[in-house]
Design a protein around this nucleic acid. Structure first.
Length: 956
DNA sequence: AATAAAAAAAAA
């Protein structure tokens, strides 16, 4: 077994006296030699049993003897990672353990004696220095090639050191070896430990050849990640107990027990499938009876098989073409080819991630698996703890991580573990938590979780290691702005460098954006002409495949979807006019959707329409509701207007903000919409006559969209102020311009036939719209371009660089980054460019002044008492945590936010800040009485189930 | 001081 190292026998008693860990509370400690061989053994086991083939091939590809060398290298680096602990700067910290070393002949000052200078010699940095010295002096390496290996040691606490720090430490020899009588002893001990590691971990004979190696930066990153992972596992005292041990020391047995106790699921090992698309889809998805594979799906799988190497595949197609299934099928094909050990499915929102999660689980259940195979799965976003599917999975796979001795209890085989059958899906305990979670094999999460791979932050290497072994799927790629795109492109560049297959899903992408994505993945390198065809393609649906060093492939499968025609009409921006019009159009019944660009416009329209049609016939949807209410609103919309039409009202109006333009499968007879950027407007139009439905009222049998939110009488139509604030004049005017012919000539809009042309025209550079609009359009474009420029620059501040030249060390990779979480609100780096906002937990204040979860929350979560003098029950705390509410931007403006927070902190309860019950810890609490205004920082806040949160000035 | 929706923040 790989754990059978015996480093100890290679060391003198002095070298064996060096300590690595101690137990703050007790007497326990761990000698350095032991932690070295524990870590090395874990690294080897990870390499053999956890690291996906893709990552092994990546590392092996940089070394003369391939993956055999790769394993040696990672084991050795894990073995030596804490060599910096063999220094006075580190060892002096614990008196009792330092005294043992002093007794053995290693002199050192007391902790206080070194004082603040110890900060110059963190043990990671000291280790890098020692290792570089040793490679130069013992093995004759030129200094400049040592950094690419040693930086893995230097960065094992999450941030690769900067060059200046290394130089500074180099000038302070006393921190690394006590000068004077014992200097020789220190030198001998450090040399002994490094020599011993080289010999014991099998690299002594390899160092001669390795000095000629130029490690690519992606390889340095994954090596760093693996060493950190090995260190974290080997530093867990439940797995690797401290000395003194209850029984005798047996290195092999110690490691075997730990590995057995950790019980980490291995990587997915996808098989290369040759099935035709229809067979493949039928076996992997539950398709409705009679369903056939769509041309886009079949073509995507075919193209995935045709890509010459690891590649990027962009799938542009309208909704309803089964892009998600296509992505999973393609992921399986590409994973098998690339040796990827998992999938990361990134979506734009928590809600879409939650919806995707069970679909991924279903797919995993249908994948061919070997008997007893276990696969780790994770839902990754900030509120995943509240998700029921994820909680169930966690409960099912609960296990304690602790060493299990070989003679001890065997892990009880779970049902279905033996023999063929679906793999067991687990949420592994060790993989819980923000920094480790993504190391699970299958991850569904928000796009932010992927974009963080481009953000300079501590332990970034772990995120990269997680992503480097997977296939990455990016959904709704058209939905991200310039700031997020800057991160996305940088991440794509690294994914390309790792050889990670990527699937990008989108409705129509602006052609320039399509080229940017392709080029970002392929690397900036040289031949830009290669991508001209990618930008020129105008077909829809469209497949684009990119693979470094090859010309892009384009595929043009047929569209299968049913077509539809929609007529566009102008409607004056006036509430009475709107109500009149709806009274006419809904005279014979029918359901209308009114989409407004701001919440205030939603509420003012709803008020007027309720007056005309009655409160029961008008409902409101926007995002300024408590999370549970928001979910209930969505559920109700789906129930009334979803595919099952049995509860569809006779006559109803839904007034909604942009929440109605996203992912809800609802159908309306008539649409009224504020003018919006054309792609978003088309999404709204997608809610019109969406389902086949007989018996639409006669005057609504033709699909119509009434466009409003514009002063149509102006020489150049002028969108209302709120719309401009949200979307900018440029996007709105371009949208109006490309729609102009349809409005003027009353030419219907064909769906999905016209989508691509409209989007390309609106987002292209060509002139659009009547000639007399040109000056206004031009001015709006300049403003827009300046704003995009600002955003791109802002995104660059905390963004990592592209991978540097092979052999260039990773030192300074995260320089100028965010480092540890800094607690100032403003200083926090982000992957979304948005102004500050505040989220509160809404609770209900009862008559007697006590607090409880809001009484109307469903699913047994309502009215649970929240005592302020003691910790609430976990059930009540979790129920309360589900009642999050984002406050409107005006409460988070820089001039008022401090006051808002200060006033909310009146409801900071010490007893709620407990670790064991973290649901409410650190949250801002907003107590309300439904229907009664609450005063906060000079504002009147009013929450009702009908309208959500309304804010007005307190003195109004 | 009037503008959507969207996400998010612990180590060895």
């Amino acid at each position: 077994m790989a754990g059978g190292f015996d480093l100890r026998s290679r060391l003198s008693a002095v070298a064996r006296s060096v300590w690595a860990k101690h137990d703050v509370l007790g007497e326990g400690w761990l000698p350095l030699w032991c932690h070295m061989q524990d870590s090395a053994a874990v690294a080897g086991l990870l390499w053999d049993g956890w690291v996906p083939e893709r990552v092994r091939a990546l590392v092996g590809g940089a070394l003369p003897e391939g993956e055999v060398d790769g394993r040696r290298l990672v084991v050795w680096l894990a073995g030596v990672h804490d060599i910096g602990k063999a220094t006075p700067a580190f060892a002096c910290q614990v008196d009792a353990l330092a005294d043992r070393m002093r007794d053995a002949g290693l002199e050192m000052p007391y902790r206080a004696g070194l004082g603040a200078d110890r900060r110059l010699a963190p043990h990671g940095l000291a280790g890098q220095l020692l290792l570089q010295e040793w490679l130069k002096e013992r093995h004759g390496w030129p200094g400049r090639v040592t950094g690419q290996f040693a930086v893995v040691v230097g960065g094992h606490h999450g941030v690769p050191p900067e060059q200046v720090a290394l130089l500074e430490l180099d000038g302070r020899a006393e921190l690394v070896r006590t000068p004077g009588g014992s200097e020789g002893a220190w030198l001998r001990v450090q040399g002994e430990l490094l020599d011993g590691c080289a010999a014991e971990f099998g690299v002594e004979e390899r160092l001669g050849q390795w000095r000629g190696v130029r490690l690519p930066q992606p390889v340095q990153v994954v090596l760093s990640g693996l060493v950190i992972m090995a260190d974290w596992i080997a530093s867990n005292p439940d797995l690797f107990p401290y000395f003194p041990l209850e029984t005798g020391y047996d290195g092999g047995r110690r490691v075997a027990a730990a590995w057995r106790g950790l019980d980490l699921p291995g990587p997915w090992r996808p098989r290369v499938s040759q099935e035709d698309a229809p067979v493949l889809f039928a076996s992997r998805f539950e398709l409705p009876p009679g369903a056939v594979v769509r041309p886009v799906q079949a073509a995507a799988v075919e193209m995935a098989r045709a890509i010459p190497g690891a590649g990027l595949l962009i799938v542009e197609a309208p909704m309803g073409e089964g892009k998600t299934e296509a992505a999973l099928a393609v992921a399986e094909v590409l994973a098998a080819r690339a040796g990827a050990g998992g999938v990361f499915f990134a979506l734009p929102t928590m809600a879409t991630s939650n919806a995707m999660f069970p679909r991924l689980l279903d797919w995993l259940d249908r994948l061919p698996a070997e008997g007893g195979e276990r696969l780790s799965v994770l839902l990754a976003h900030s509120k995943a703890a509240l998700n029921r599917d994820a909680a169930e999975l966690r409960a099912r796979s609960r296990q304690r991580v602790a060493a299990v001795d070989v003679d001890g209890a065997q892990r009880v085989p779970k049902v279905g573990e033996e023999g063929a059958g679906p793999a067991e899906l687990v949420a592994h305990q060790w993989l819980a938590g923000r920094k480790k979670g993504l190391l699970s094999s299958f991850v569904v999460g928000t796009i932010d979780q992927l974009l963080f791979a481009g953000l300079k932050a501590r332990h970034l290497v772990l995120r990269h290691l997680a992503v480097a072994g997977k296939v990455v799927v990016i959904d709704e790629a058209h939905a991200y702005d310039t700031y997020m795109n800057a991160y996305l492109d940088r991440v794509l560049g690294w994914l390309g460098a790792y050889g990670v297959p990527v699937v990008v899903l989108s409705a129509t992408l602006p052609a320039a954006r399509r080229r940017e994505l392709a080029q970002a993945y392929a690397g900036a390198g040289g031949d830009e002409g290669r991508f001209a065809a990618v930008e020129q393609a105008r077909e829809y649906p469209l497949l684009t495949a990119v693979c470094a060093g090859h010309d892009p492939l384009l595929g043009r499968p047929a569209a299968s979807g049913r077509g539809g025609e929609v007529r566009l009409e102008r409607l004056e921006d006036d509430l009475e006019a709107l109500a009149d019009r709806l009274e006419d159009d809904l005279a014979g019944g029918g359901c209308a959707l009114v989409v407004r660009n701001t919440v205030d416009r939603v509420l003012e329209a709803a008020a007027v329409l309720r007056g005309r049609f009655g409160a029961d016939s008008v409902s409101v949807a926007h995002a300024r509701f408590i999370d549970t209410d928001r979910a209930e609103n969505d559920r109700r919309l789906l129930e009334l207007f979803g595919p099952d039409g049995s509860r569809r009202p006779e006559r109803h109006i839904v007034v909604a903000s942009q929440v109605a333009e996203q992912s809800l499968d609802v159908d309306f007879d008539l649409l009224v919409s504020d003018v919006a950027p054309v792609d978003l407007l088309l999404q709204r139009v997608g809610r019109l006559h969406r389902h086949q439905r007989s018996g639409r009222p006669a005057r609504l049998r033709e699909a119509r969209c009434l466009l409003t939110g514009v002063d149509w009488s102006a020489p150049v139509p002028a969108p209302v102020r709120g719309s401009e604030a949200v979307y900018g004049r440029h996007a709105l005017l371009r949208s109006l311009a490309v729609l102009h012919p349809h409005l003027e000539e009353r030419r219907g809009l064909s769906l999905p036939g016209d989508i691509s042309a409209l989007v390309q025209a609106a987002y292209g550079d060509g002139s659009v719209g009547p000639a007399q609009w040109a000056p206004v359009l031009q001015e709006a474009r300049l403003v827009h371009e300046q704003l995009q420029d600002t955003k791109a620059k802002a995104a660059d501040v905390f963004r990592i660089r592209e991978a540097g030249k092979d052999g260039r060390s990773l030192m300074g990779w995260l320089a100028g980054g965010t480092g540890d979480a800094d607690d100032t609100r403003a200083g926090r780096a982000q992957v979304r460019d948005s102004p500050e906002s505040l989220e509160v937990i809404v609770v209900e204040e009862l008559e007697d002044g006590s607090l409880a979860t809001v009484s109307w929350a469903g699913e047994g979560r309502g009215g649970l008492p929240l005592p302020t003098g003691s910790a609430p029950s976990p059930r009540a705390a979790k129920a309360a945590a589900a009642c999050g509410l984002r406050l409107p931007a005006r409460l988070a403006k820089s001039y008022v936010i401090d006051r808002v927070i200060a006033e909310l902190e009146r409801f900071y309860f010490e007893s709620w800040q407990v670790k064991e019950n973290p649901w409410l810890a650190g949250q801002l609490i907003l107590p309300i009485r439904p229907g009664c205004p609450t005063l906060l920082a000079g504002f009147r806040l009013m929450y009702t189930r009908e309208n959500g949160l309304e804010v007005s000035s307190a003195d109004a």
